[in-house]
């Protein structure tokens, strides 16, 4: 392995980890409601911008970050309560359009509450690059990778080992049966929105010291996260993670080895190829449309 390859791999992993966090948010809401929440990118923005805002007000990072995540979760809850729930019973397409509207609204609101400028967070542990096999890595990338891994493990535990998590899974499998078994389906939906919002916010905070944050940072990250979720298989947690990492690495490798002008096109082509052979994504549920 040449130093160049290691460099591309590390970069791809860092970028991919962020895509994976956003993709996880998509999957959780999709599971709970069959809705693709296009305001997912805005949660990323709220995380970053709110942290910048709290930090500027003199709140230390240790408090500013949880506050920002909580703020995003509250916005997620509000989105569910005031936009998605009143339209309950509407078709999935209608709900998706509602989330697109919500994303535009949230972006506009952010320009009013905050501003249109770019902001940067201080890296959590310094700026000195770490040399690794001839490649360099920022300490912040380790934070991104470490926190993403921790979140994936925590989610796996939550969905596999806790009653609440299992209730959410049950709801996604069969809503009616879950309801009959005594699960409060509506609470599950609210929880899904809060959880995805928190995940998105964490992604936004982790990436802010590397790639800055601004009112429209969520547009691109939301799209890439969506692509990652589709690639991995919409609704699959492991798929979201794999999809994010694969997309991130595909992008950097094609920028590095083939052509940086076409890297997005190449990543997109790879995605199309995968979907051609595996229509439900890398790790999506095989099979059958429920009727």
């Amino acid at each position: 392995m040449s130093a160049q390859f290691v460099q591309f791999l590390l970069t791809g992993l860092t970028v991919g980890a962020i895509y994976a966090l956003v993709a996880l948010g998509f999957s959780i809401i999709y599971n709970a409601s069959q809705v693709i929440n296009f305001a997912q990118g805005e949660f990323v923005m709220i995380g970053g911008m709110a942290t910048v805002w709290f930090a500027a007000a003199g709140v230390p990072y240790a408090a500013a970050i949880p506050l920002a995540v909580a703020a995003a979760a509250a916005v997620g809850l509000a989105l569910e309560k005031f936009a998605v729930e009143p339209a309950r019973g509407a078709s999935v397409v209608t709900l998706i359009i509602i989330t697109i509207g919500a994303s535009i609204f949230l972006r506009g609101l952010a320009t009013l509450i905050w501003d249109k400028q770019l902001h940067v967070l201080k890296p959590f542990s310094g700026d000195t690059p770490i040399v690794l096999g001839g490649a360099t890595l920022l300490p912040q990338s380790l934070w991104v990778l470490g926190v993403s891994l921790a979140i994936v493990l925590a989610l796996a535990w939550f969905f596999g080992r806790t009653l609440l998590g299992k209730a959410m899974l049950a709801t996604s499998n069969n809503r009616l049966a879950a309801q009959l078994a005594g699960i409060r389906v509506r609470h599950v939906l609210a929880l899904a929105f809060a959880l995805s919002a928190a995940l998105g916010a964490i992604a936004g905070i982790l990436i802010a010291p590397i790639a800055f944050t601004s009112y429209d940072v969520g547009v691109m990250l939301g799209l890439k996260g969506f692509a990652a979720a589709i690639l991995g298989g919409m609704g699959s947690g492991a798929g979201a993670v794999v999809g994010g990492i694969v997309l991130g690495i595909a992008e950097t490798m094609s920028a590095g080895y083939i052509s940086s002008a076409y890297k997005d096109a190449i990543a997109l082509l790879a995605m199309l190829a995968v979907l051609f052979f595996l229509p439900s994504g890398l790790l999506g549920r095989r099979g059958t449309e429920r009727v």
């Binding site: 460099q7 591309f8 970069t11 860092t14 962020i18 790639a211 950097t252 920028a255 590095g256 940086s260």
Partner: peptide, 9 residues
């Protein structure tokens, strides 16, 4: 969010 690949090239 990252241009290290291009700069490495």
């Amino acid at each position: 969010t990252d241009m290290t690949a291009q700069l490495t090239k």
